[in-house]
Design a protein around this nucleic acid. Structure first.
Length: 909
RNA sequence: GCCCGAGUGGCGGAAUGGUAGACGCGAUGGACUCAAAAUCCAUUGUCCCUUAAAGAUGUGCGGGUUCGAGUCCCGCCUCGGGCACCA
C-alpha cells in the first residue's frame, strides 16, 4: 500500500465537512482559544502560494491547541466590499456582487484543498446584508454617542443633551441650547458625536472619484490604483478616532504584538507633549492674539520669527495691506499643488512675509510673521514660533530668507546647521540660564502657566477617520436628511439594503444618487457608502455569534469567547485595520456591548512569500535566445519567462515555443545541451510570471506536503522566496514516514514494547514540538520530525507505542496523512480529538554527556561521563585523561571550568 | 532626516554566552538496475596538500567585555521595513 495522497486528502476533507469536525460550540467546561486569520479580500486573481502562509501557520496552532485540550474557535470569511470589484464592474458592466461571489467561490475551493480546520458554519461576508446590518448598527451607535472626557469613554448623546439643558457644557449654556432651532441643535451635536459630519481637508482622488483615508494614500498616490491624490475641503462623515488616541496608545503596552508593529502604531498615533503659548500680534495697527503649539518652550528666548500655515484661518487677518498681493499669490500657488508635488518638494523652502508682527510674551521682542507651507494647518494650531538655532526646518527657512539665528544653548555651533538635540546648558535665556535643557523645558512650562501666557497641551498626530466614500460597492449609511438635518434610520429597519443602479460608471456624483427612489419615507438618503475598513472592524466579534439576528454578538457568546487570542496577518494593516478595529472595539466596550477592551491579545505578522523569477536572454533584433552562461557574448535583452515552464532553472524549450505565439519559431543557443535561465527574487505577481498556484502543488505533491513545505521554508514572521524545487525534501519525508507503517502492502506496526532508544526519539520530538509551536518556530519542528523519522527508520522501529503518538504530533502539520494513519491504527474518531502526548523529560535525556575539553579555547578532546556525574568527578576525569604527560609539567592549570552538560574549559599558563 | 529589524556555505535556513553551519535543497561519488525512476550510502564553508592525518582560517567591518562571542557592549558599513516638513 503506497502513500496515495490524492485519495487520502479528498477522503478526509469530505469527512471533516460531513462530520463538522471543526464546528466550535460554546462549552463553559473547557478553556476557549480563539485563533483568527485576517480574512481575505477575494480578488479576481485567486490565491498564490504566498497567501496561505499565515493561514497554514494559524491552522497548525489551532490544531495544536485543540490537542492540548482547548475549545478552539477558528473561523474564516471574506472582506467582500471594496474598490477592485467596483472598478471591474465599471469595465465590464457586471454587478460587483456577481464577480465577488464568483471570486469567493474560487477562493473557497482553493482553501478547501489545503485542509484547514475552519468552522465554515461561522463564515461571514461583509457584503451580506445580514452582516452589514451590524456595521450600520455600530455606525448608528457612534452617531448616537459622544466622548465624555470626564469619564474618558463614549456615552449616549442623550447624556450630553441633558448637560446642555441643565448646567450647560463648554460653550453651550442652557440658554444657548434652549434658543437653538433644530438645525442649530443638530450642528452643535455634530461637534460631539463619535460619528459626525464635518468639513475637513480630505484626500480627494479624482481617478477613483472618491475621498480616501490617510492609510489608503501612500506617497501622494492612492494605494488602490495608484492615482494622484489632492487635498480638498469637503463635508464628509468622520469617526472621532482622535478621542481614543490616548487609550489606543496606552493599551498597546498590554498587547503581545511585535515591537515593530507597536512602534508603527505609536508613530501613527504620534503623541507629543508640549505647550500652547499665546503671542500677541499686530497688523496695520490692529492687534490679535495667536496661539502656537511647541514642544520646546525652553527655546522661547531664541524665537526670531513666527510662521503660519497657508491654509490657516489667521492668514487673512494677519496680512498687511502692503503684503496682501504677495500673500494671496503665494497661497494660490500652494493650493494648486497636488499632495504628491508637496511631498516631492519638501526640500525646497518657500514662504512669504505677511507684513504682521508678533510680540514674544517673555521678552517683549517684536518678530516678523511669515507664511509657509512647511507649517501644517491640520496639526497643533497651524501656527508656530520659529527657533532657527534649534530646529532644522526653522533653520532652513531662516537661511533662505535671511532671518536672525540666535543660539540659546551653551557652546553649540549653528553656523552650518541647527542644534536640535535636547541636551546642553541654557544661555541667553533669562531665568532659564544655566539650566539643563530637560530641566528648562519643565521650568518654562511652569512659568508660562503661572503667568497665564499659555498651558500644557498634548497633541496627537492621529486624525479622525474620514468615513464616507463616493462609491457604490460599500455599506449604505443609515442616514436620511430632513430639511437638511441628518437623521438616523431606526435601528429596527436595518439593514438598509444597497440599492440597484443601472450603471457603475463614475459621473462625478455619488453612484447612489442615481439609484431609483433612494429615500426613506420620502426623505433623501445619504448617497455615500462606507469605506473598506467599516466591514472589517468588528468581524471578529460576529464570528462569535454569526447567525444572531438580535445582536452583533450575544452577551453569553461574547463572555465565553471574549477576544482573539491569536491573530495572524500581514503588517500592511498596522495603521489601518488594526487601528480602526481597536477603536471600534473600545467604542463598543464603552457602551457595554463587548466585555474586552482590546480585540487582539496576541498578533503574529507573517512574512511575505516572494517569487523566484526566471529570465531568458533574447539577442537584440533576433528571435534567438542564448543560455545564461553564454549571454555576455551577445547583446541581449532580459525577458521574464513563466516559471512554470522552467525546471531547476532549465527551460523547457517546447513549452516555451508554445507559451506565446511570438516565440513559436524561437531559436536557442544552448550550453551543455540545455538552456539555462537567469533568476531573481521579486514580488510574486502576474506581471513577473513567477506566480505559483497552490492548486498545482496540491495536484503534484498534495496538501500535506504544501503545508509542510511552506512552514519549512523559514520562520513564519520572515519574508522568504518560494522555490518549488526544494519541496522534494518534505515529500520524501512523508513517504519515509509512511514506510514506517507499510512495506508495500505489508502492515508493519506491532504491539512490542519500545526500547529506550525509541522512547528517546519520541520524547525528544514531543519536547521540541511543544517548545517550538509556542514560538512559531515551525521550521525547526519539521527538522526535528525529519530527524526522528530517520532515526526510527534506522532503528527499524514500527511499534505502536511510538508511532501512535508520532501521528498525533504530526497531525497539526500534515492532518490528512495523520488522519489516515490514525484510522489504520484502529481509531474511529478524528485524530484532531486525540490528546497531545505527555512529555517526559527523563526519557528524552541522553545517558552520557560528552564533554568537549578545551585548553584556552584551543586544543581539545572529549570525555564521556554519565549524566549523574558531579562537577568534581568530571574535573577528576579531565585531569586524568589528557593532562599527562603532555600538558602537565611545563604548563600548569590556572582554572578549570565545568559547565554541567556542556563543556570543560581548561585555562593553562 | 527620524524610528524599527536584519546581515551566517552555492541556496532556504539551525545554533538557552559553550564543538558554528542542525534540517532541507543543490552538487559530487557510489550501491541497486539491462536502463531509468524510486530508494539507500558517502562527501560537501574556505585555505594549504596528490590524498589523508594534522593544521590554519571562518558568522558584514573595526574595537571591547569574557576562560570562551554568530549571540553581550561601543563605533561604522550594507540591505529591508515604517514614518516623514507633526513644531
Amino acid at each position: 500500500m503506497d502513500y496515495d495522497f490524492k485519495s487520502i486528502e479528498s477522503k478526509w476533507q469530505s469527512r471533516w465537512a460531513e462530520n463538522k469536525t471543526f464546528a466550535a460550540k460554546e462549552d463553559p467546561s473547557r478553556p476557549k482559544f480563539y485563533v483568527l486569520d485576517m480574512f481575505p479580500y477575494p480578488s479576481g486573481a485567486g490565491l498564490h502560494v504566498g497567501h496561505p502562509l499565515g493561514y497554514i501557520a494559524s491552522d497548525i496552532y489551532s490544531r495544536y491547541k485543540r490537542l492540548k485540550g482547548f475549545n478552539v474557535l477558528h473561523p474564516m470569511g471574506y472582506d467582500a466590499f471594496g474598490l477592485p470589484a467596483e472598478q471591474y464592474a465599471i469595465q465590464t458592466g457586471q454587478h460587483p456582487e456577481k464577480t465577488t461571489t464568483d471570486n469567493i467561490n474560487r477562493y473557497r475551493s482553493q482553501l478547501d484543498r489545503i485542509g484547514f480546520s475552519y468552522d465554515w458554519d461561522r463564515e461571514v461576508r461583509t457584503c451580506d446584508p445580514d452582516y452589514y446590518k451590524w456595521t450600520q448598527w455600530a455606525f448608528l451607535k457612534m452617531f448616537g454617542s459622544w466622548y465624555d472626557p470626564a469619564q474618558d469613554k463614549a456615552r449616549p448623546i442623550g447624556e450630553l443633551i441633558a448637560k446642555f439643558e441643565s448646567t450647560g457644557y463648554e460653550d453651550v449654556t442652557p440658554e444657548v441650547w434652549a434658543a437653538a432651532d433644530e438645525k442649530q441643535k443638530s450642528d452643535i451635536l455634530m461637534r460631539y458625536r463619535i460619528a459626525y459630519q464635518g468639513e475637513t481637508s480630505v484626500n480627494w482622488c479624482e481617478g477613483l472619484g472618491t475621498v480616501l483615508a490617510n492609510d489608503e494614500v501612500k506617497d501622494g498616490l492612492s494605494v488602490r490604483g495608484g492615482f494622484p491624490v489632492e487635498q480638498k475641503k469637503m463635508t464628509q462623515w468622520q469617526l472621532r478616532v482622535s478621542a481614543y488616541a490616548g487609550r489606543l496608545l496606552d493599551s498597546l503596552d498590554k498587547l503581545e504584538w511585535s515591537d515593530s508593529l507597536k512602534e508603527m502604531q505609536r508613530n501613527w498615533i504620534g503623541r507629543s507633549d508640549g505647550c500652547e503659548v499665546v503671542f500677541n500680534t499686530e497688523c496695520d495697527g490692529r492687534s490679535l492674539p495667536v496661539t502656537i503649539f511647541t514642544t520646546r518652550v525652553d527655546t522661547i528666548f531664541g524665537v526670531t520669527f513666527m510662521v503660519l500655515a497657508p491654509e490657516s484661518e489667521l492668514v487673512d487677518s494677519l496680512t498687511s495691506e502692503s503684503q496682501r498681493e504677495a500673500v494671496q499669490a503665494y497661497v494660490r500657488e500652494v493650493r494648486k499643488k497636488t499632495e504628491r508635488e508637496r511631498i516631492s518638494e519638501t526640500k525646497t523652502v518657500s514662504g512669504v512675509f505677511s507684513g504682521a508682527y508678533g510680540i514674544n510674551p517673555l521678552t517683549g521682542e517684536k518678530i516678523p510673521i511669515w507664511i509657509s507651507e512647511y507649517v501644517l494647518a491640520g496639526y497643533g494650531t497651524g501656527a508656530i514660533m520659529a527657533v532657527p538655532a534649534h530646529d532644522s526646518r526653522d533653520y532652513a527657512f531662516a537661511r533662505k530668507f535671511n532671518l536672525p539665528i540666535v543660539p540659546i544653548i551653551e557652546g553649540c555651533d549653528v553656523s552650518e546647521q541647527s542644534f536640535d538635540a535636547k541636551e546642553g546648558r541654557m544661555c541667553n535665556s533669562g531665568f532659564l540660564n544655566g539650566m539643563d535643557v530637560k530641566q528648562a523645558i519643565e521650568a518654562a512650562k511652569d512659568y508660562v502657566e503661572q503667568k497665564g501666557l499659555g498651558r500644557r497641551k498634548t497633541n496627537w498626530r492621529l486624525r479622525d477617520a474620514i468615513f464616507s466614500r463616493q462609491r457604490y460597492w460599500g455599506e449604505p449609511f443609515p442616514i436620511y436628511y430632513k430639511d437638511g438635518i441628518p437623521c438616523p434610520v431606526p435601528e429596527s429597519e436595518l439593514p438598509l439594503r444597497l440599492p440597484e443602479i443601472d450603471s457603475y460608471k463614475p459621473t462625478g456624483e455619488a453612484p447612489l444618487a442615481r439609484a431609483k427612489d433612494w429615500t426613506w419615507h420620502g426623505y433623501p438618503l445619504e448617497t455615500s457608502t462606507m469605506p473598506g475598513f467599516a466591514g472589517s472592524s468588528a468581524y471578529y466579534l460576529r464570528y462569535m455569534d454569526p447567525h444572531n439576528s438580535e445582536a452583533l454578538v450575544s452577551r453569553s457568546a461574547n463572555e465565553y469567547w471574549r477576544n482573539v487570542d491569536l491573530y495572524v496577518g500581514g503588517t500592511e494593516h498596522a495603521t489601518g485595520h488594526l487601528i480602526y478595529s481597536r477603536f471600534w472595539n473600545k467604542f463598543l466596550y464603552d457602551l457595554g456591548y463587548v466585555c474586552e477592551d482590546e480585540p487582539f491579545r496576541k498578533l503574529v505578522n507573517q512574512g511575505m512569500i516572494q517569487g523566484r523569477s526566471n529570465f531568458v536572454y533574447r539577442i537584440v533584433g533576433t528571435n534567438t535566445f542564448v543560455s545564461l552562461g553564454l549571454k555576455d557574448k551577445y547583446e541581449t535583452t532580459e525577458i521574464h519567462v513563466d516559471v512554470n515552464i522552467v525546471h531547476a532553472d532549465r527551460l523547457d524549450l517546447d513549452a516555451f515555443r508554445a507559451w506565446r505565439p511570438e516565440f513559436a519559431d524561437a531559436e536557442f543557443i544552448l550550453e551543455d545541451g540545455e538552456y539555462r535561465c537567469g533568476w531573481a527574487i521579486e514580488k510574486m505577481s502576474k506581471s513577473m510570471f513567477n506566480v505559483v498556484n497552490p492548486d498545482l502543488i496540491c495536484d503534484t505533491y498534495g496538501a500535506d506536503t504544501l503545508r509542510l513545505y511552506e512552514m519549512f521554508l523559514g520562520p513564519v514572521e520572515q519574508s522568504k522566496p518560494w522555490d518549488t524545487k526544494g519541496i522534494d525534501g518534505v515529500d520524501r519525508f512523508l513517504r519515509k514516514l509512511w514506510r514506517l507503517f507499510y512495506n508495500r502492502s505489508e502492515w508493519l506496526v506491532t504491539d512490542d514494547e519500545p526500547s529506550k532508544d525509541e522512547l528517546k526519539v519520541l520524547h525528544k520530538l514531543i519536547g521540541k514540538e511543544q517548545e517550538d509551536i509556542e514560538n512559531f518556530s515551525y521550521n525547526t519542528t519539521i527538522s526535528a520530525f525529519m530527524i526522528a523519522v530517520s532515526d526510527l527508520t534506522s532503528l527499524g522501529c514500527s511499534k505502536r507505542a511510538i508511532l501512535e503518538p508520532l501521528v498525533v504530533l504530526l497531525s497539526p502539520f500534515a492532518p490528512h496523512i495523520a488522519e489516515e494513519l490514525w484510522e489504520r491504527l484502529g481509531h474511529d474518531g478524528s485524530v484532531a480529538d486525540a490528546s497531545f502526548p505527555e512529555f517526559i523529560p527523563a526519557l528524552a535525556a541522553e545517558d552520557n554527556i560528552t564533554y568537549p575539553v578545551q585548553f584556552n579555547g584551543k586544543m581539545r578532546f572529549t570525555i564521556d561521563m554519565p549524566r549523574s556525574a558531579s562537577a568534581a568527578e568530571v574535573e577528576a576525569a579531565v585531569r586524568a585523561a589528557e593532562l599527562t604527560p603532555k600538558y602537565v609539567g611545563e604548563q600548569s592549570i590556572v582554572k578549570l571550568i565545568v559547565v554541567p552538560g556542556r563543556i570543560v574549559n581548561v585555562v593553562v599558563k
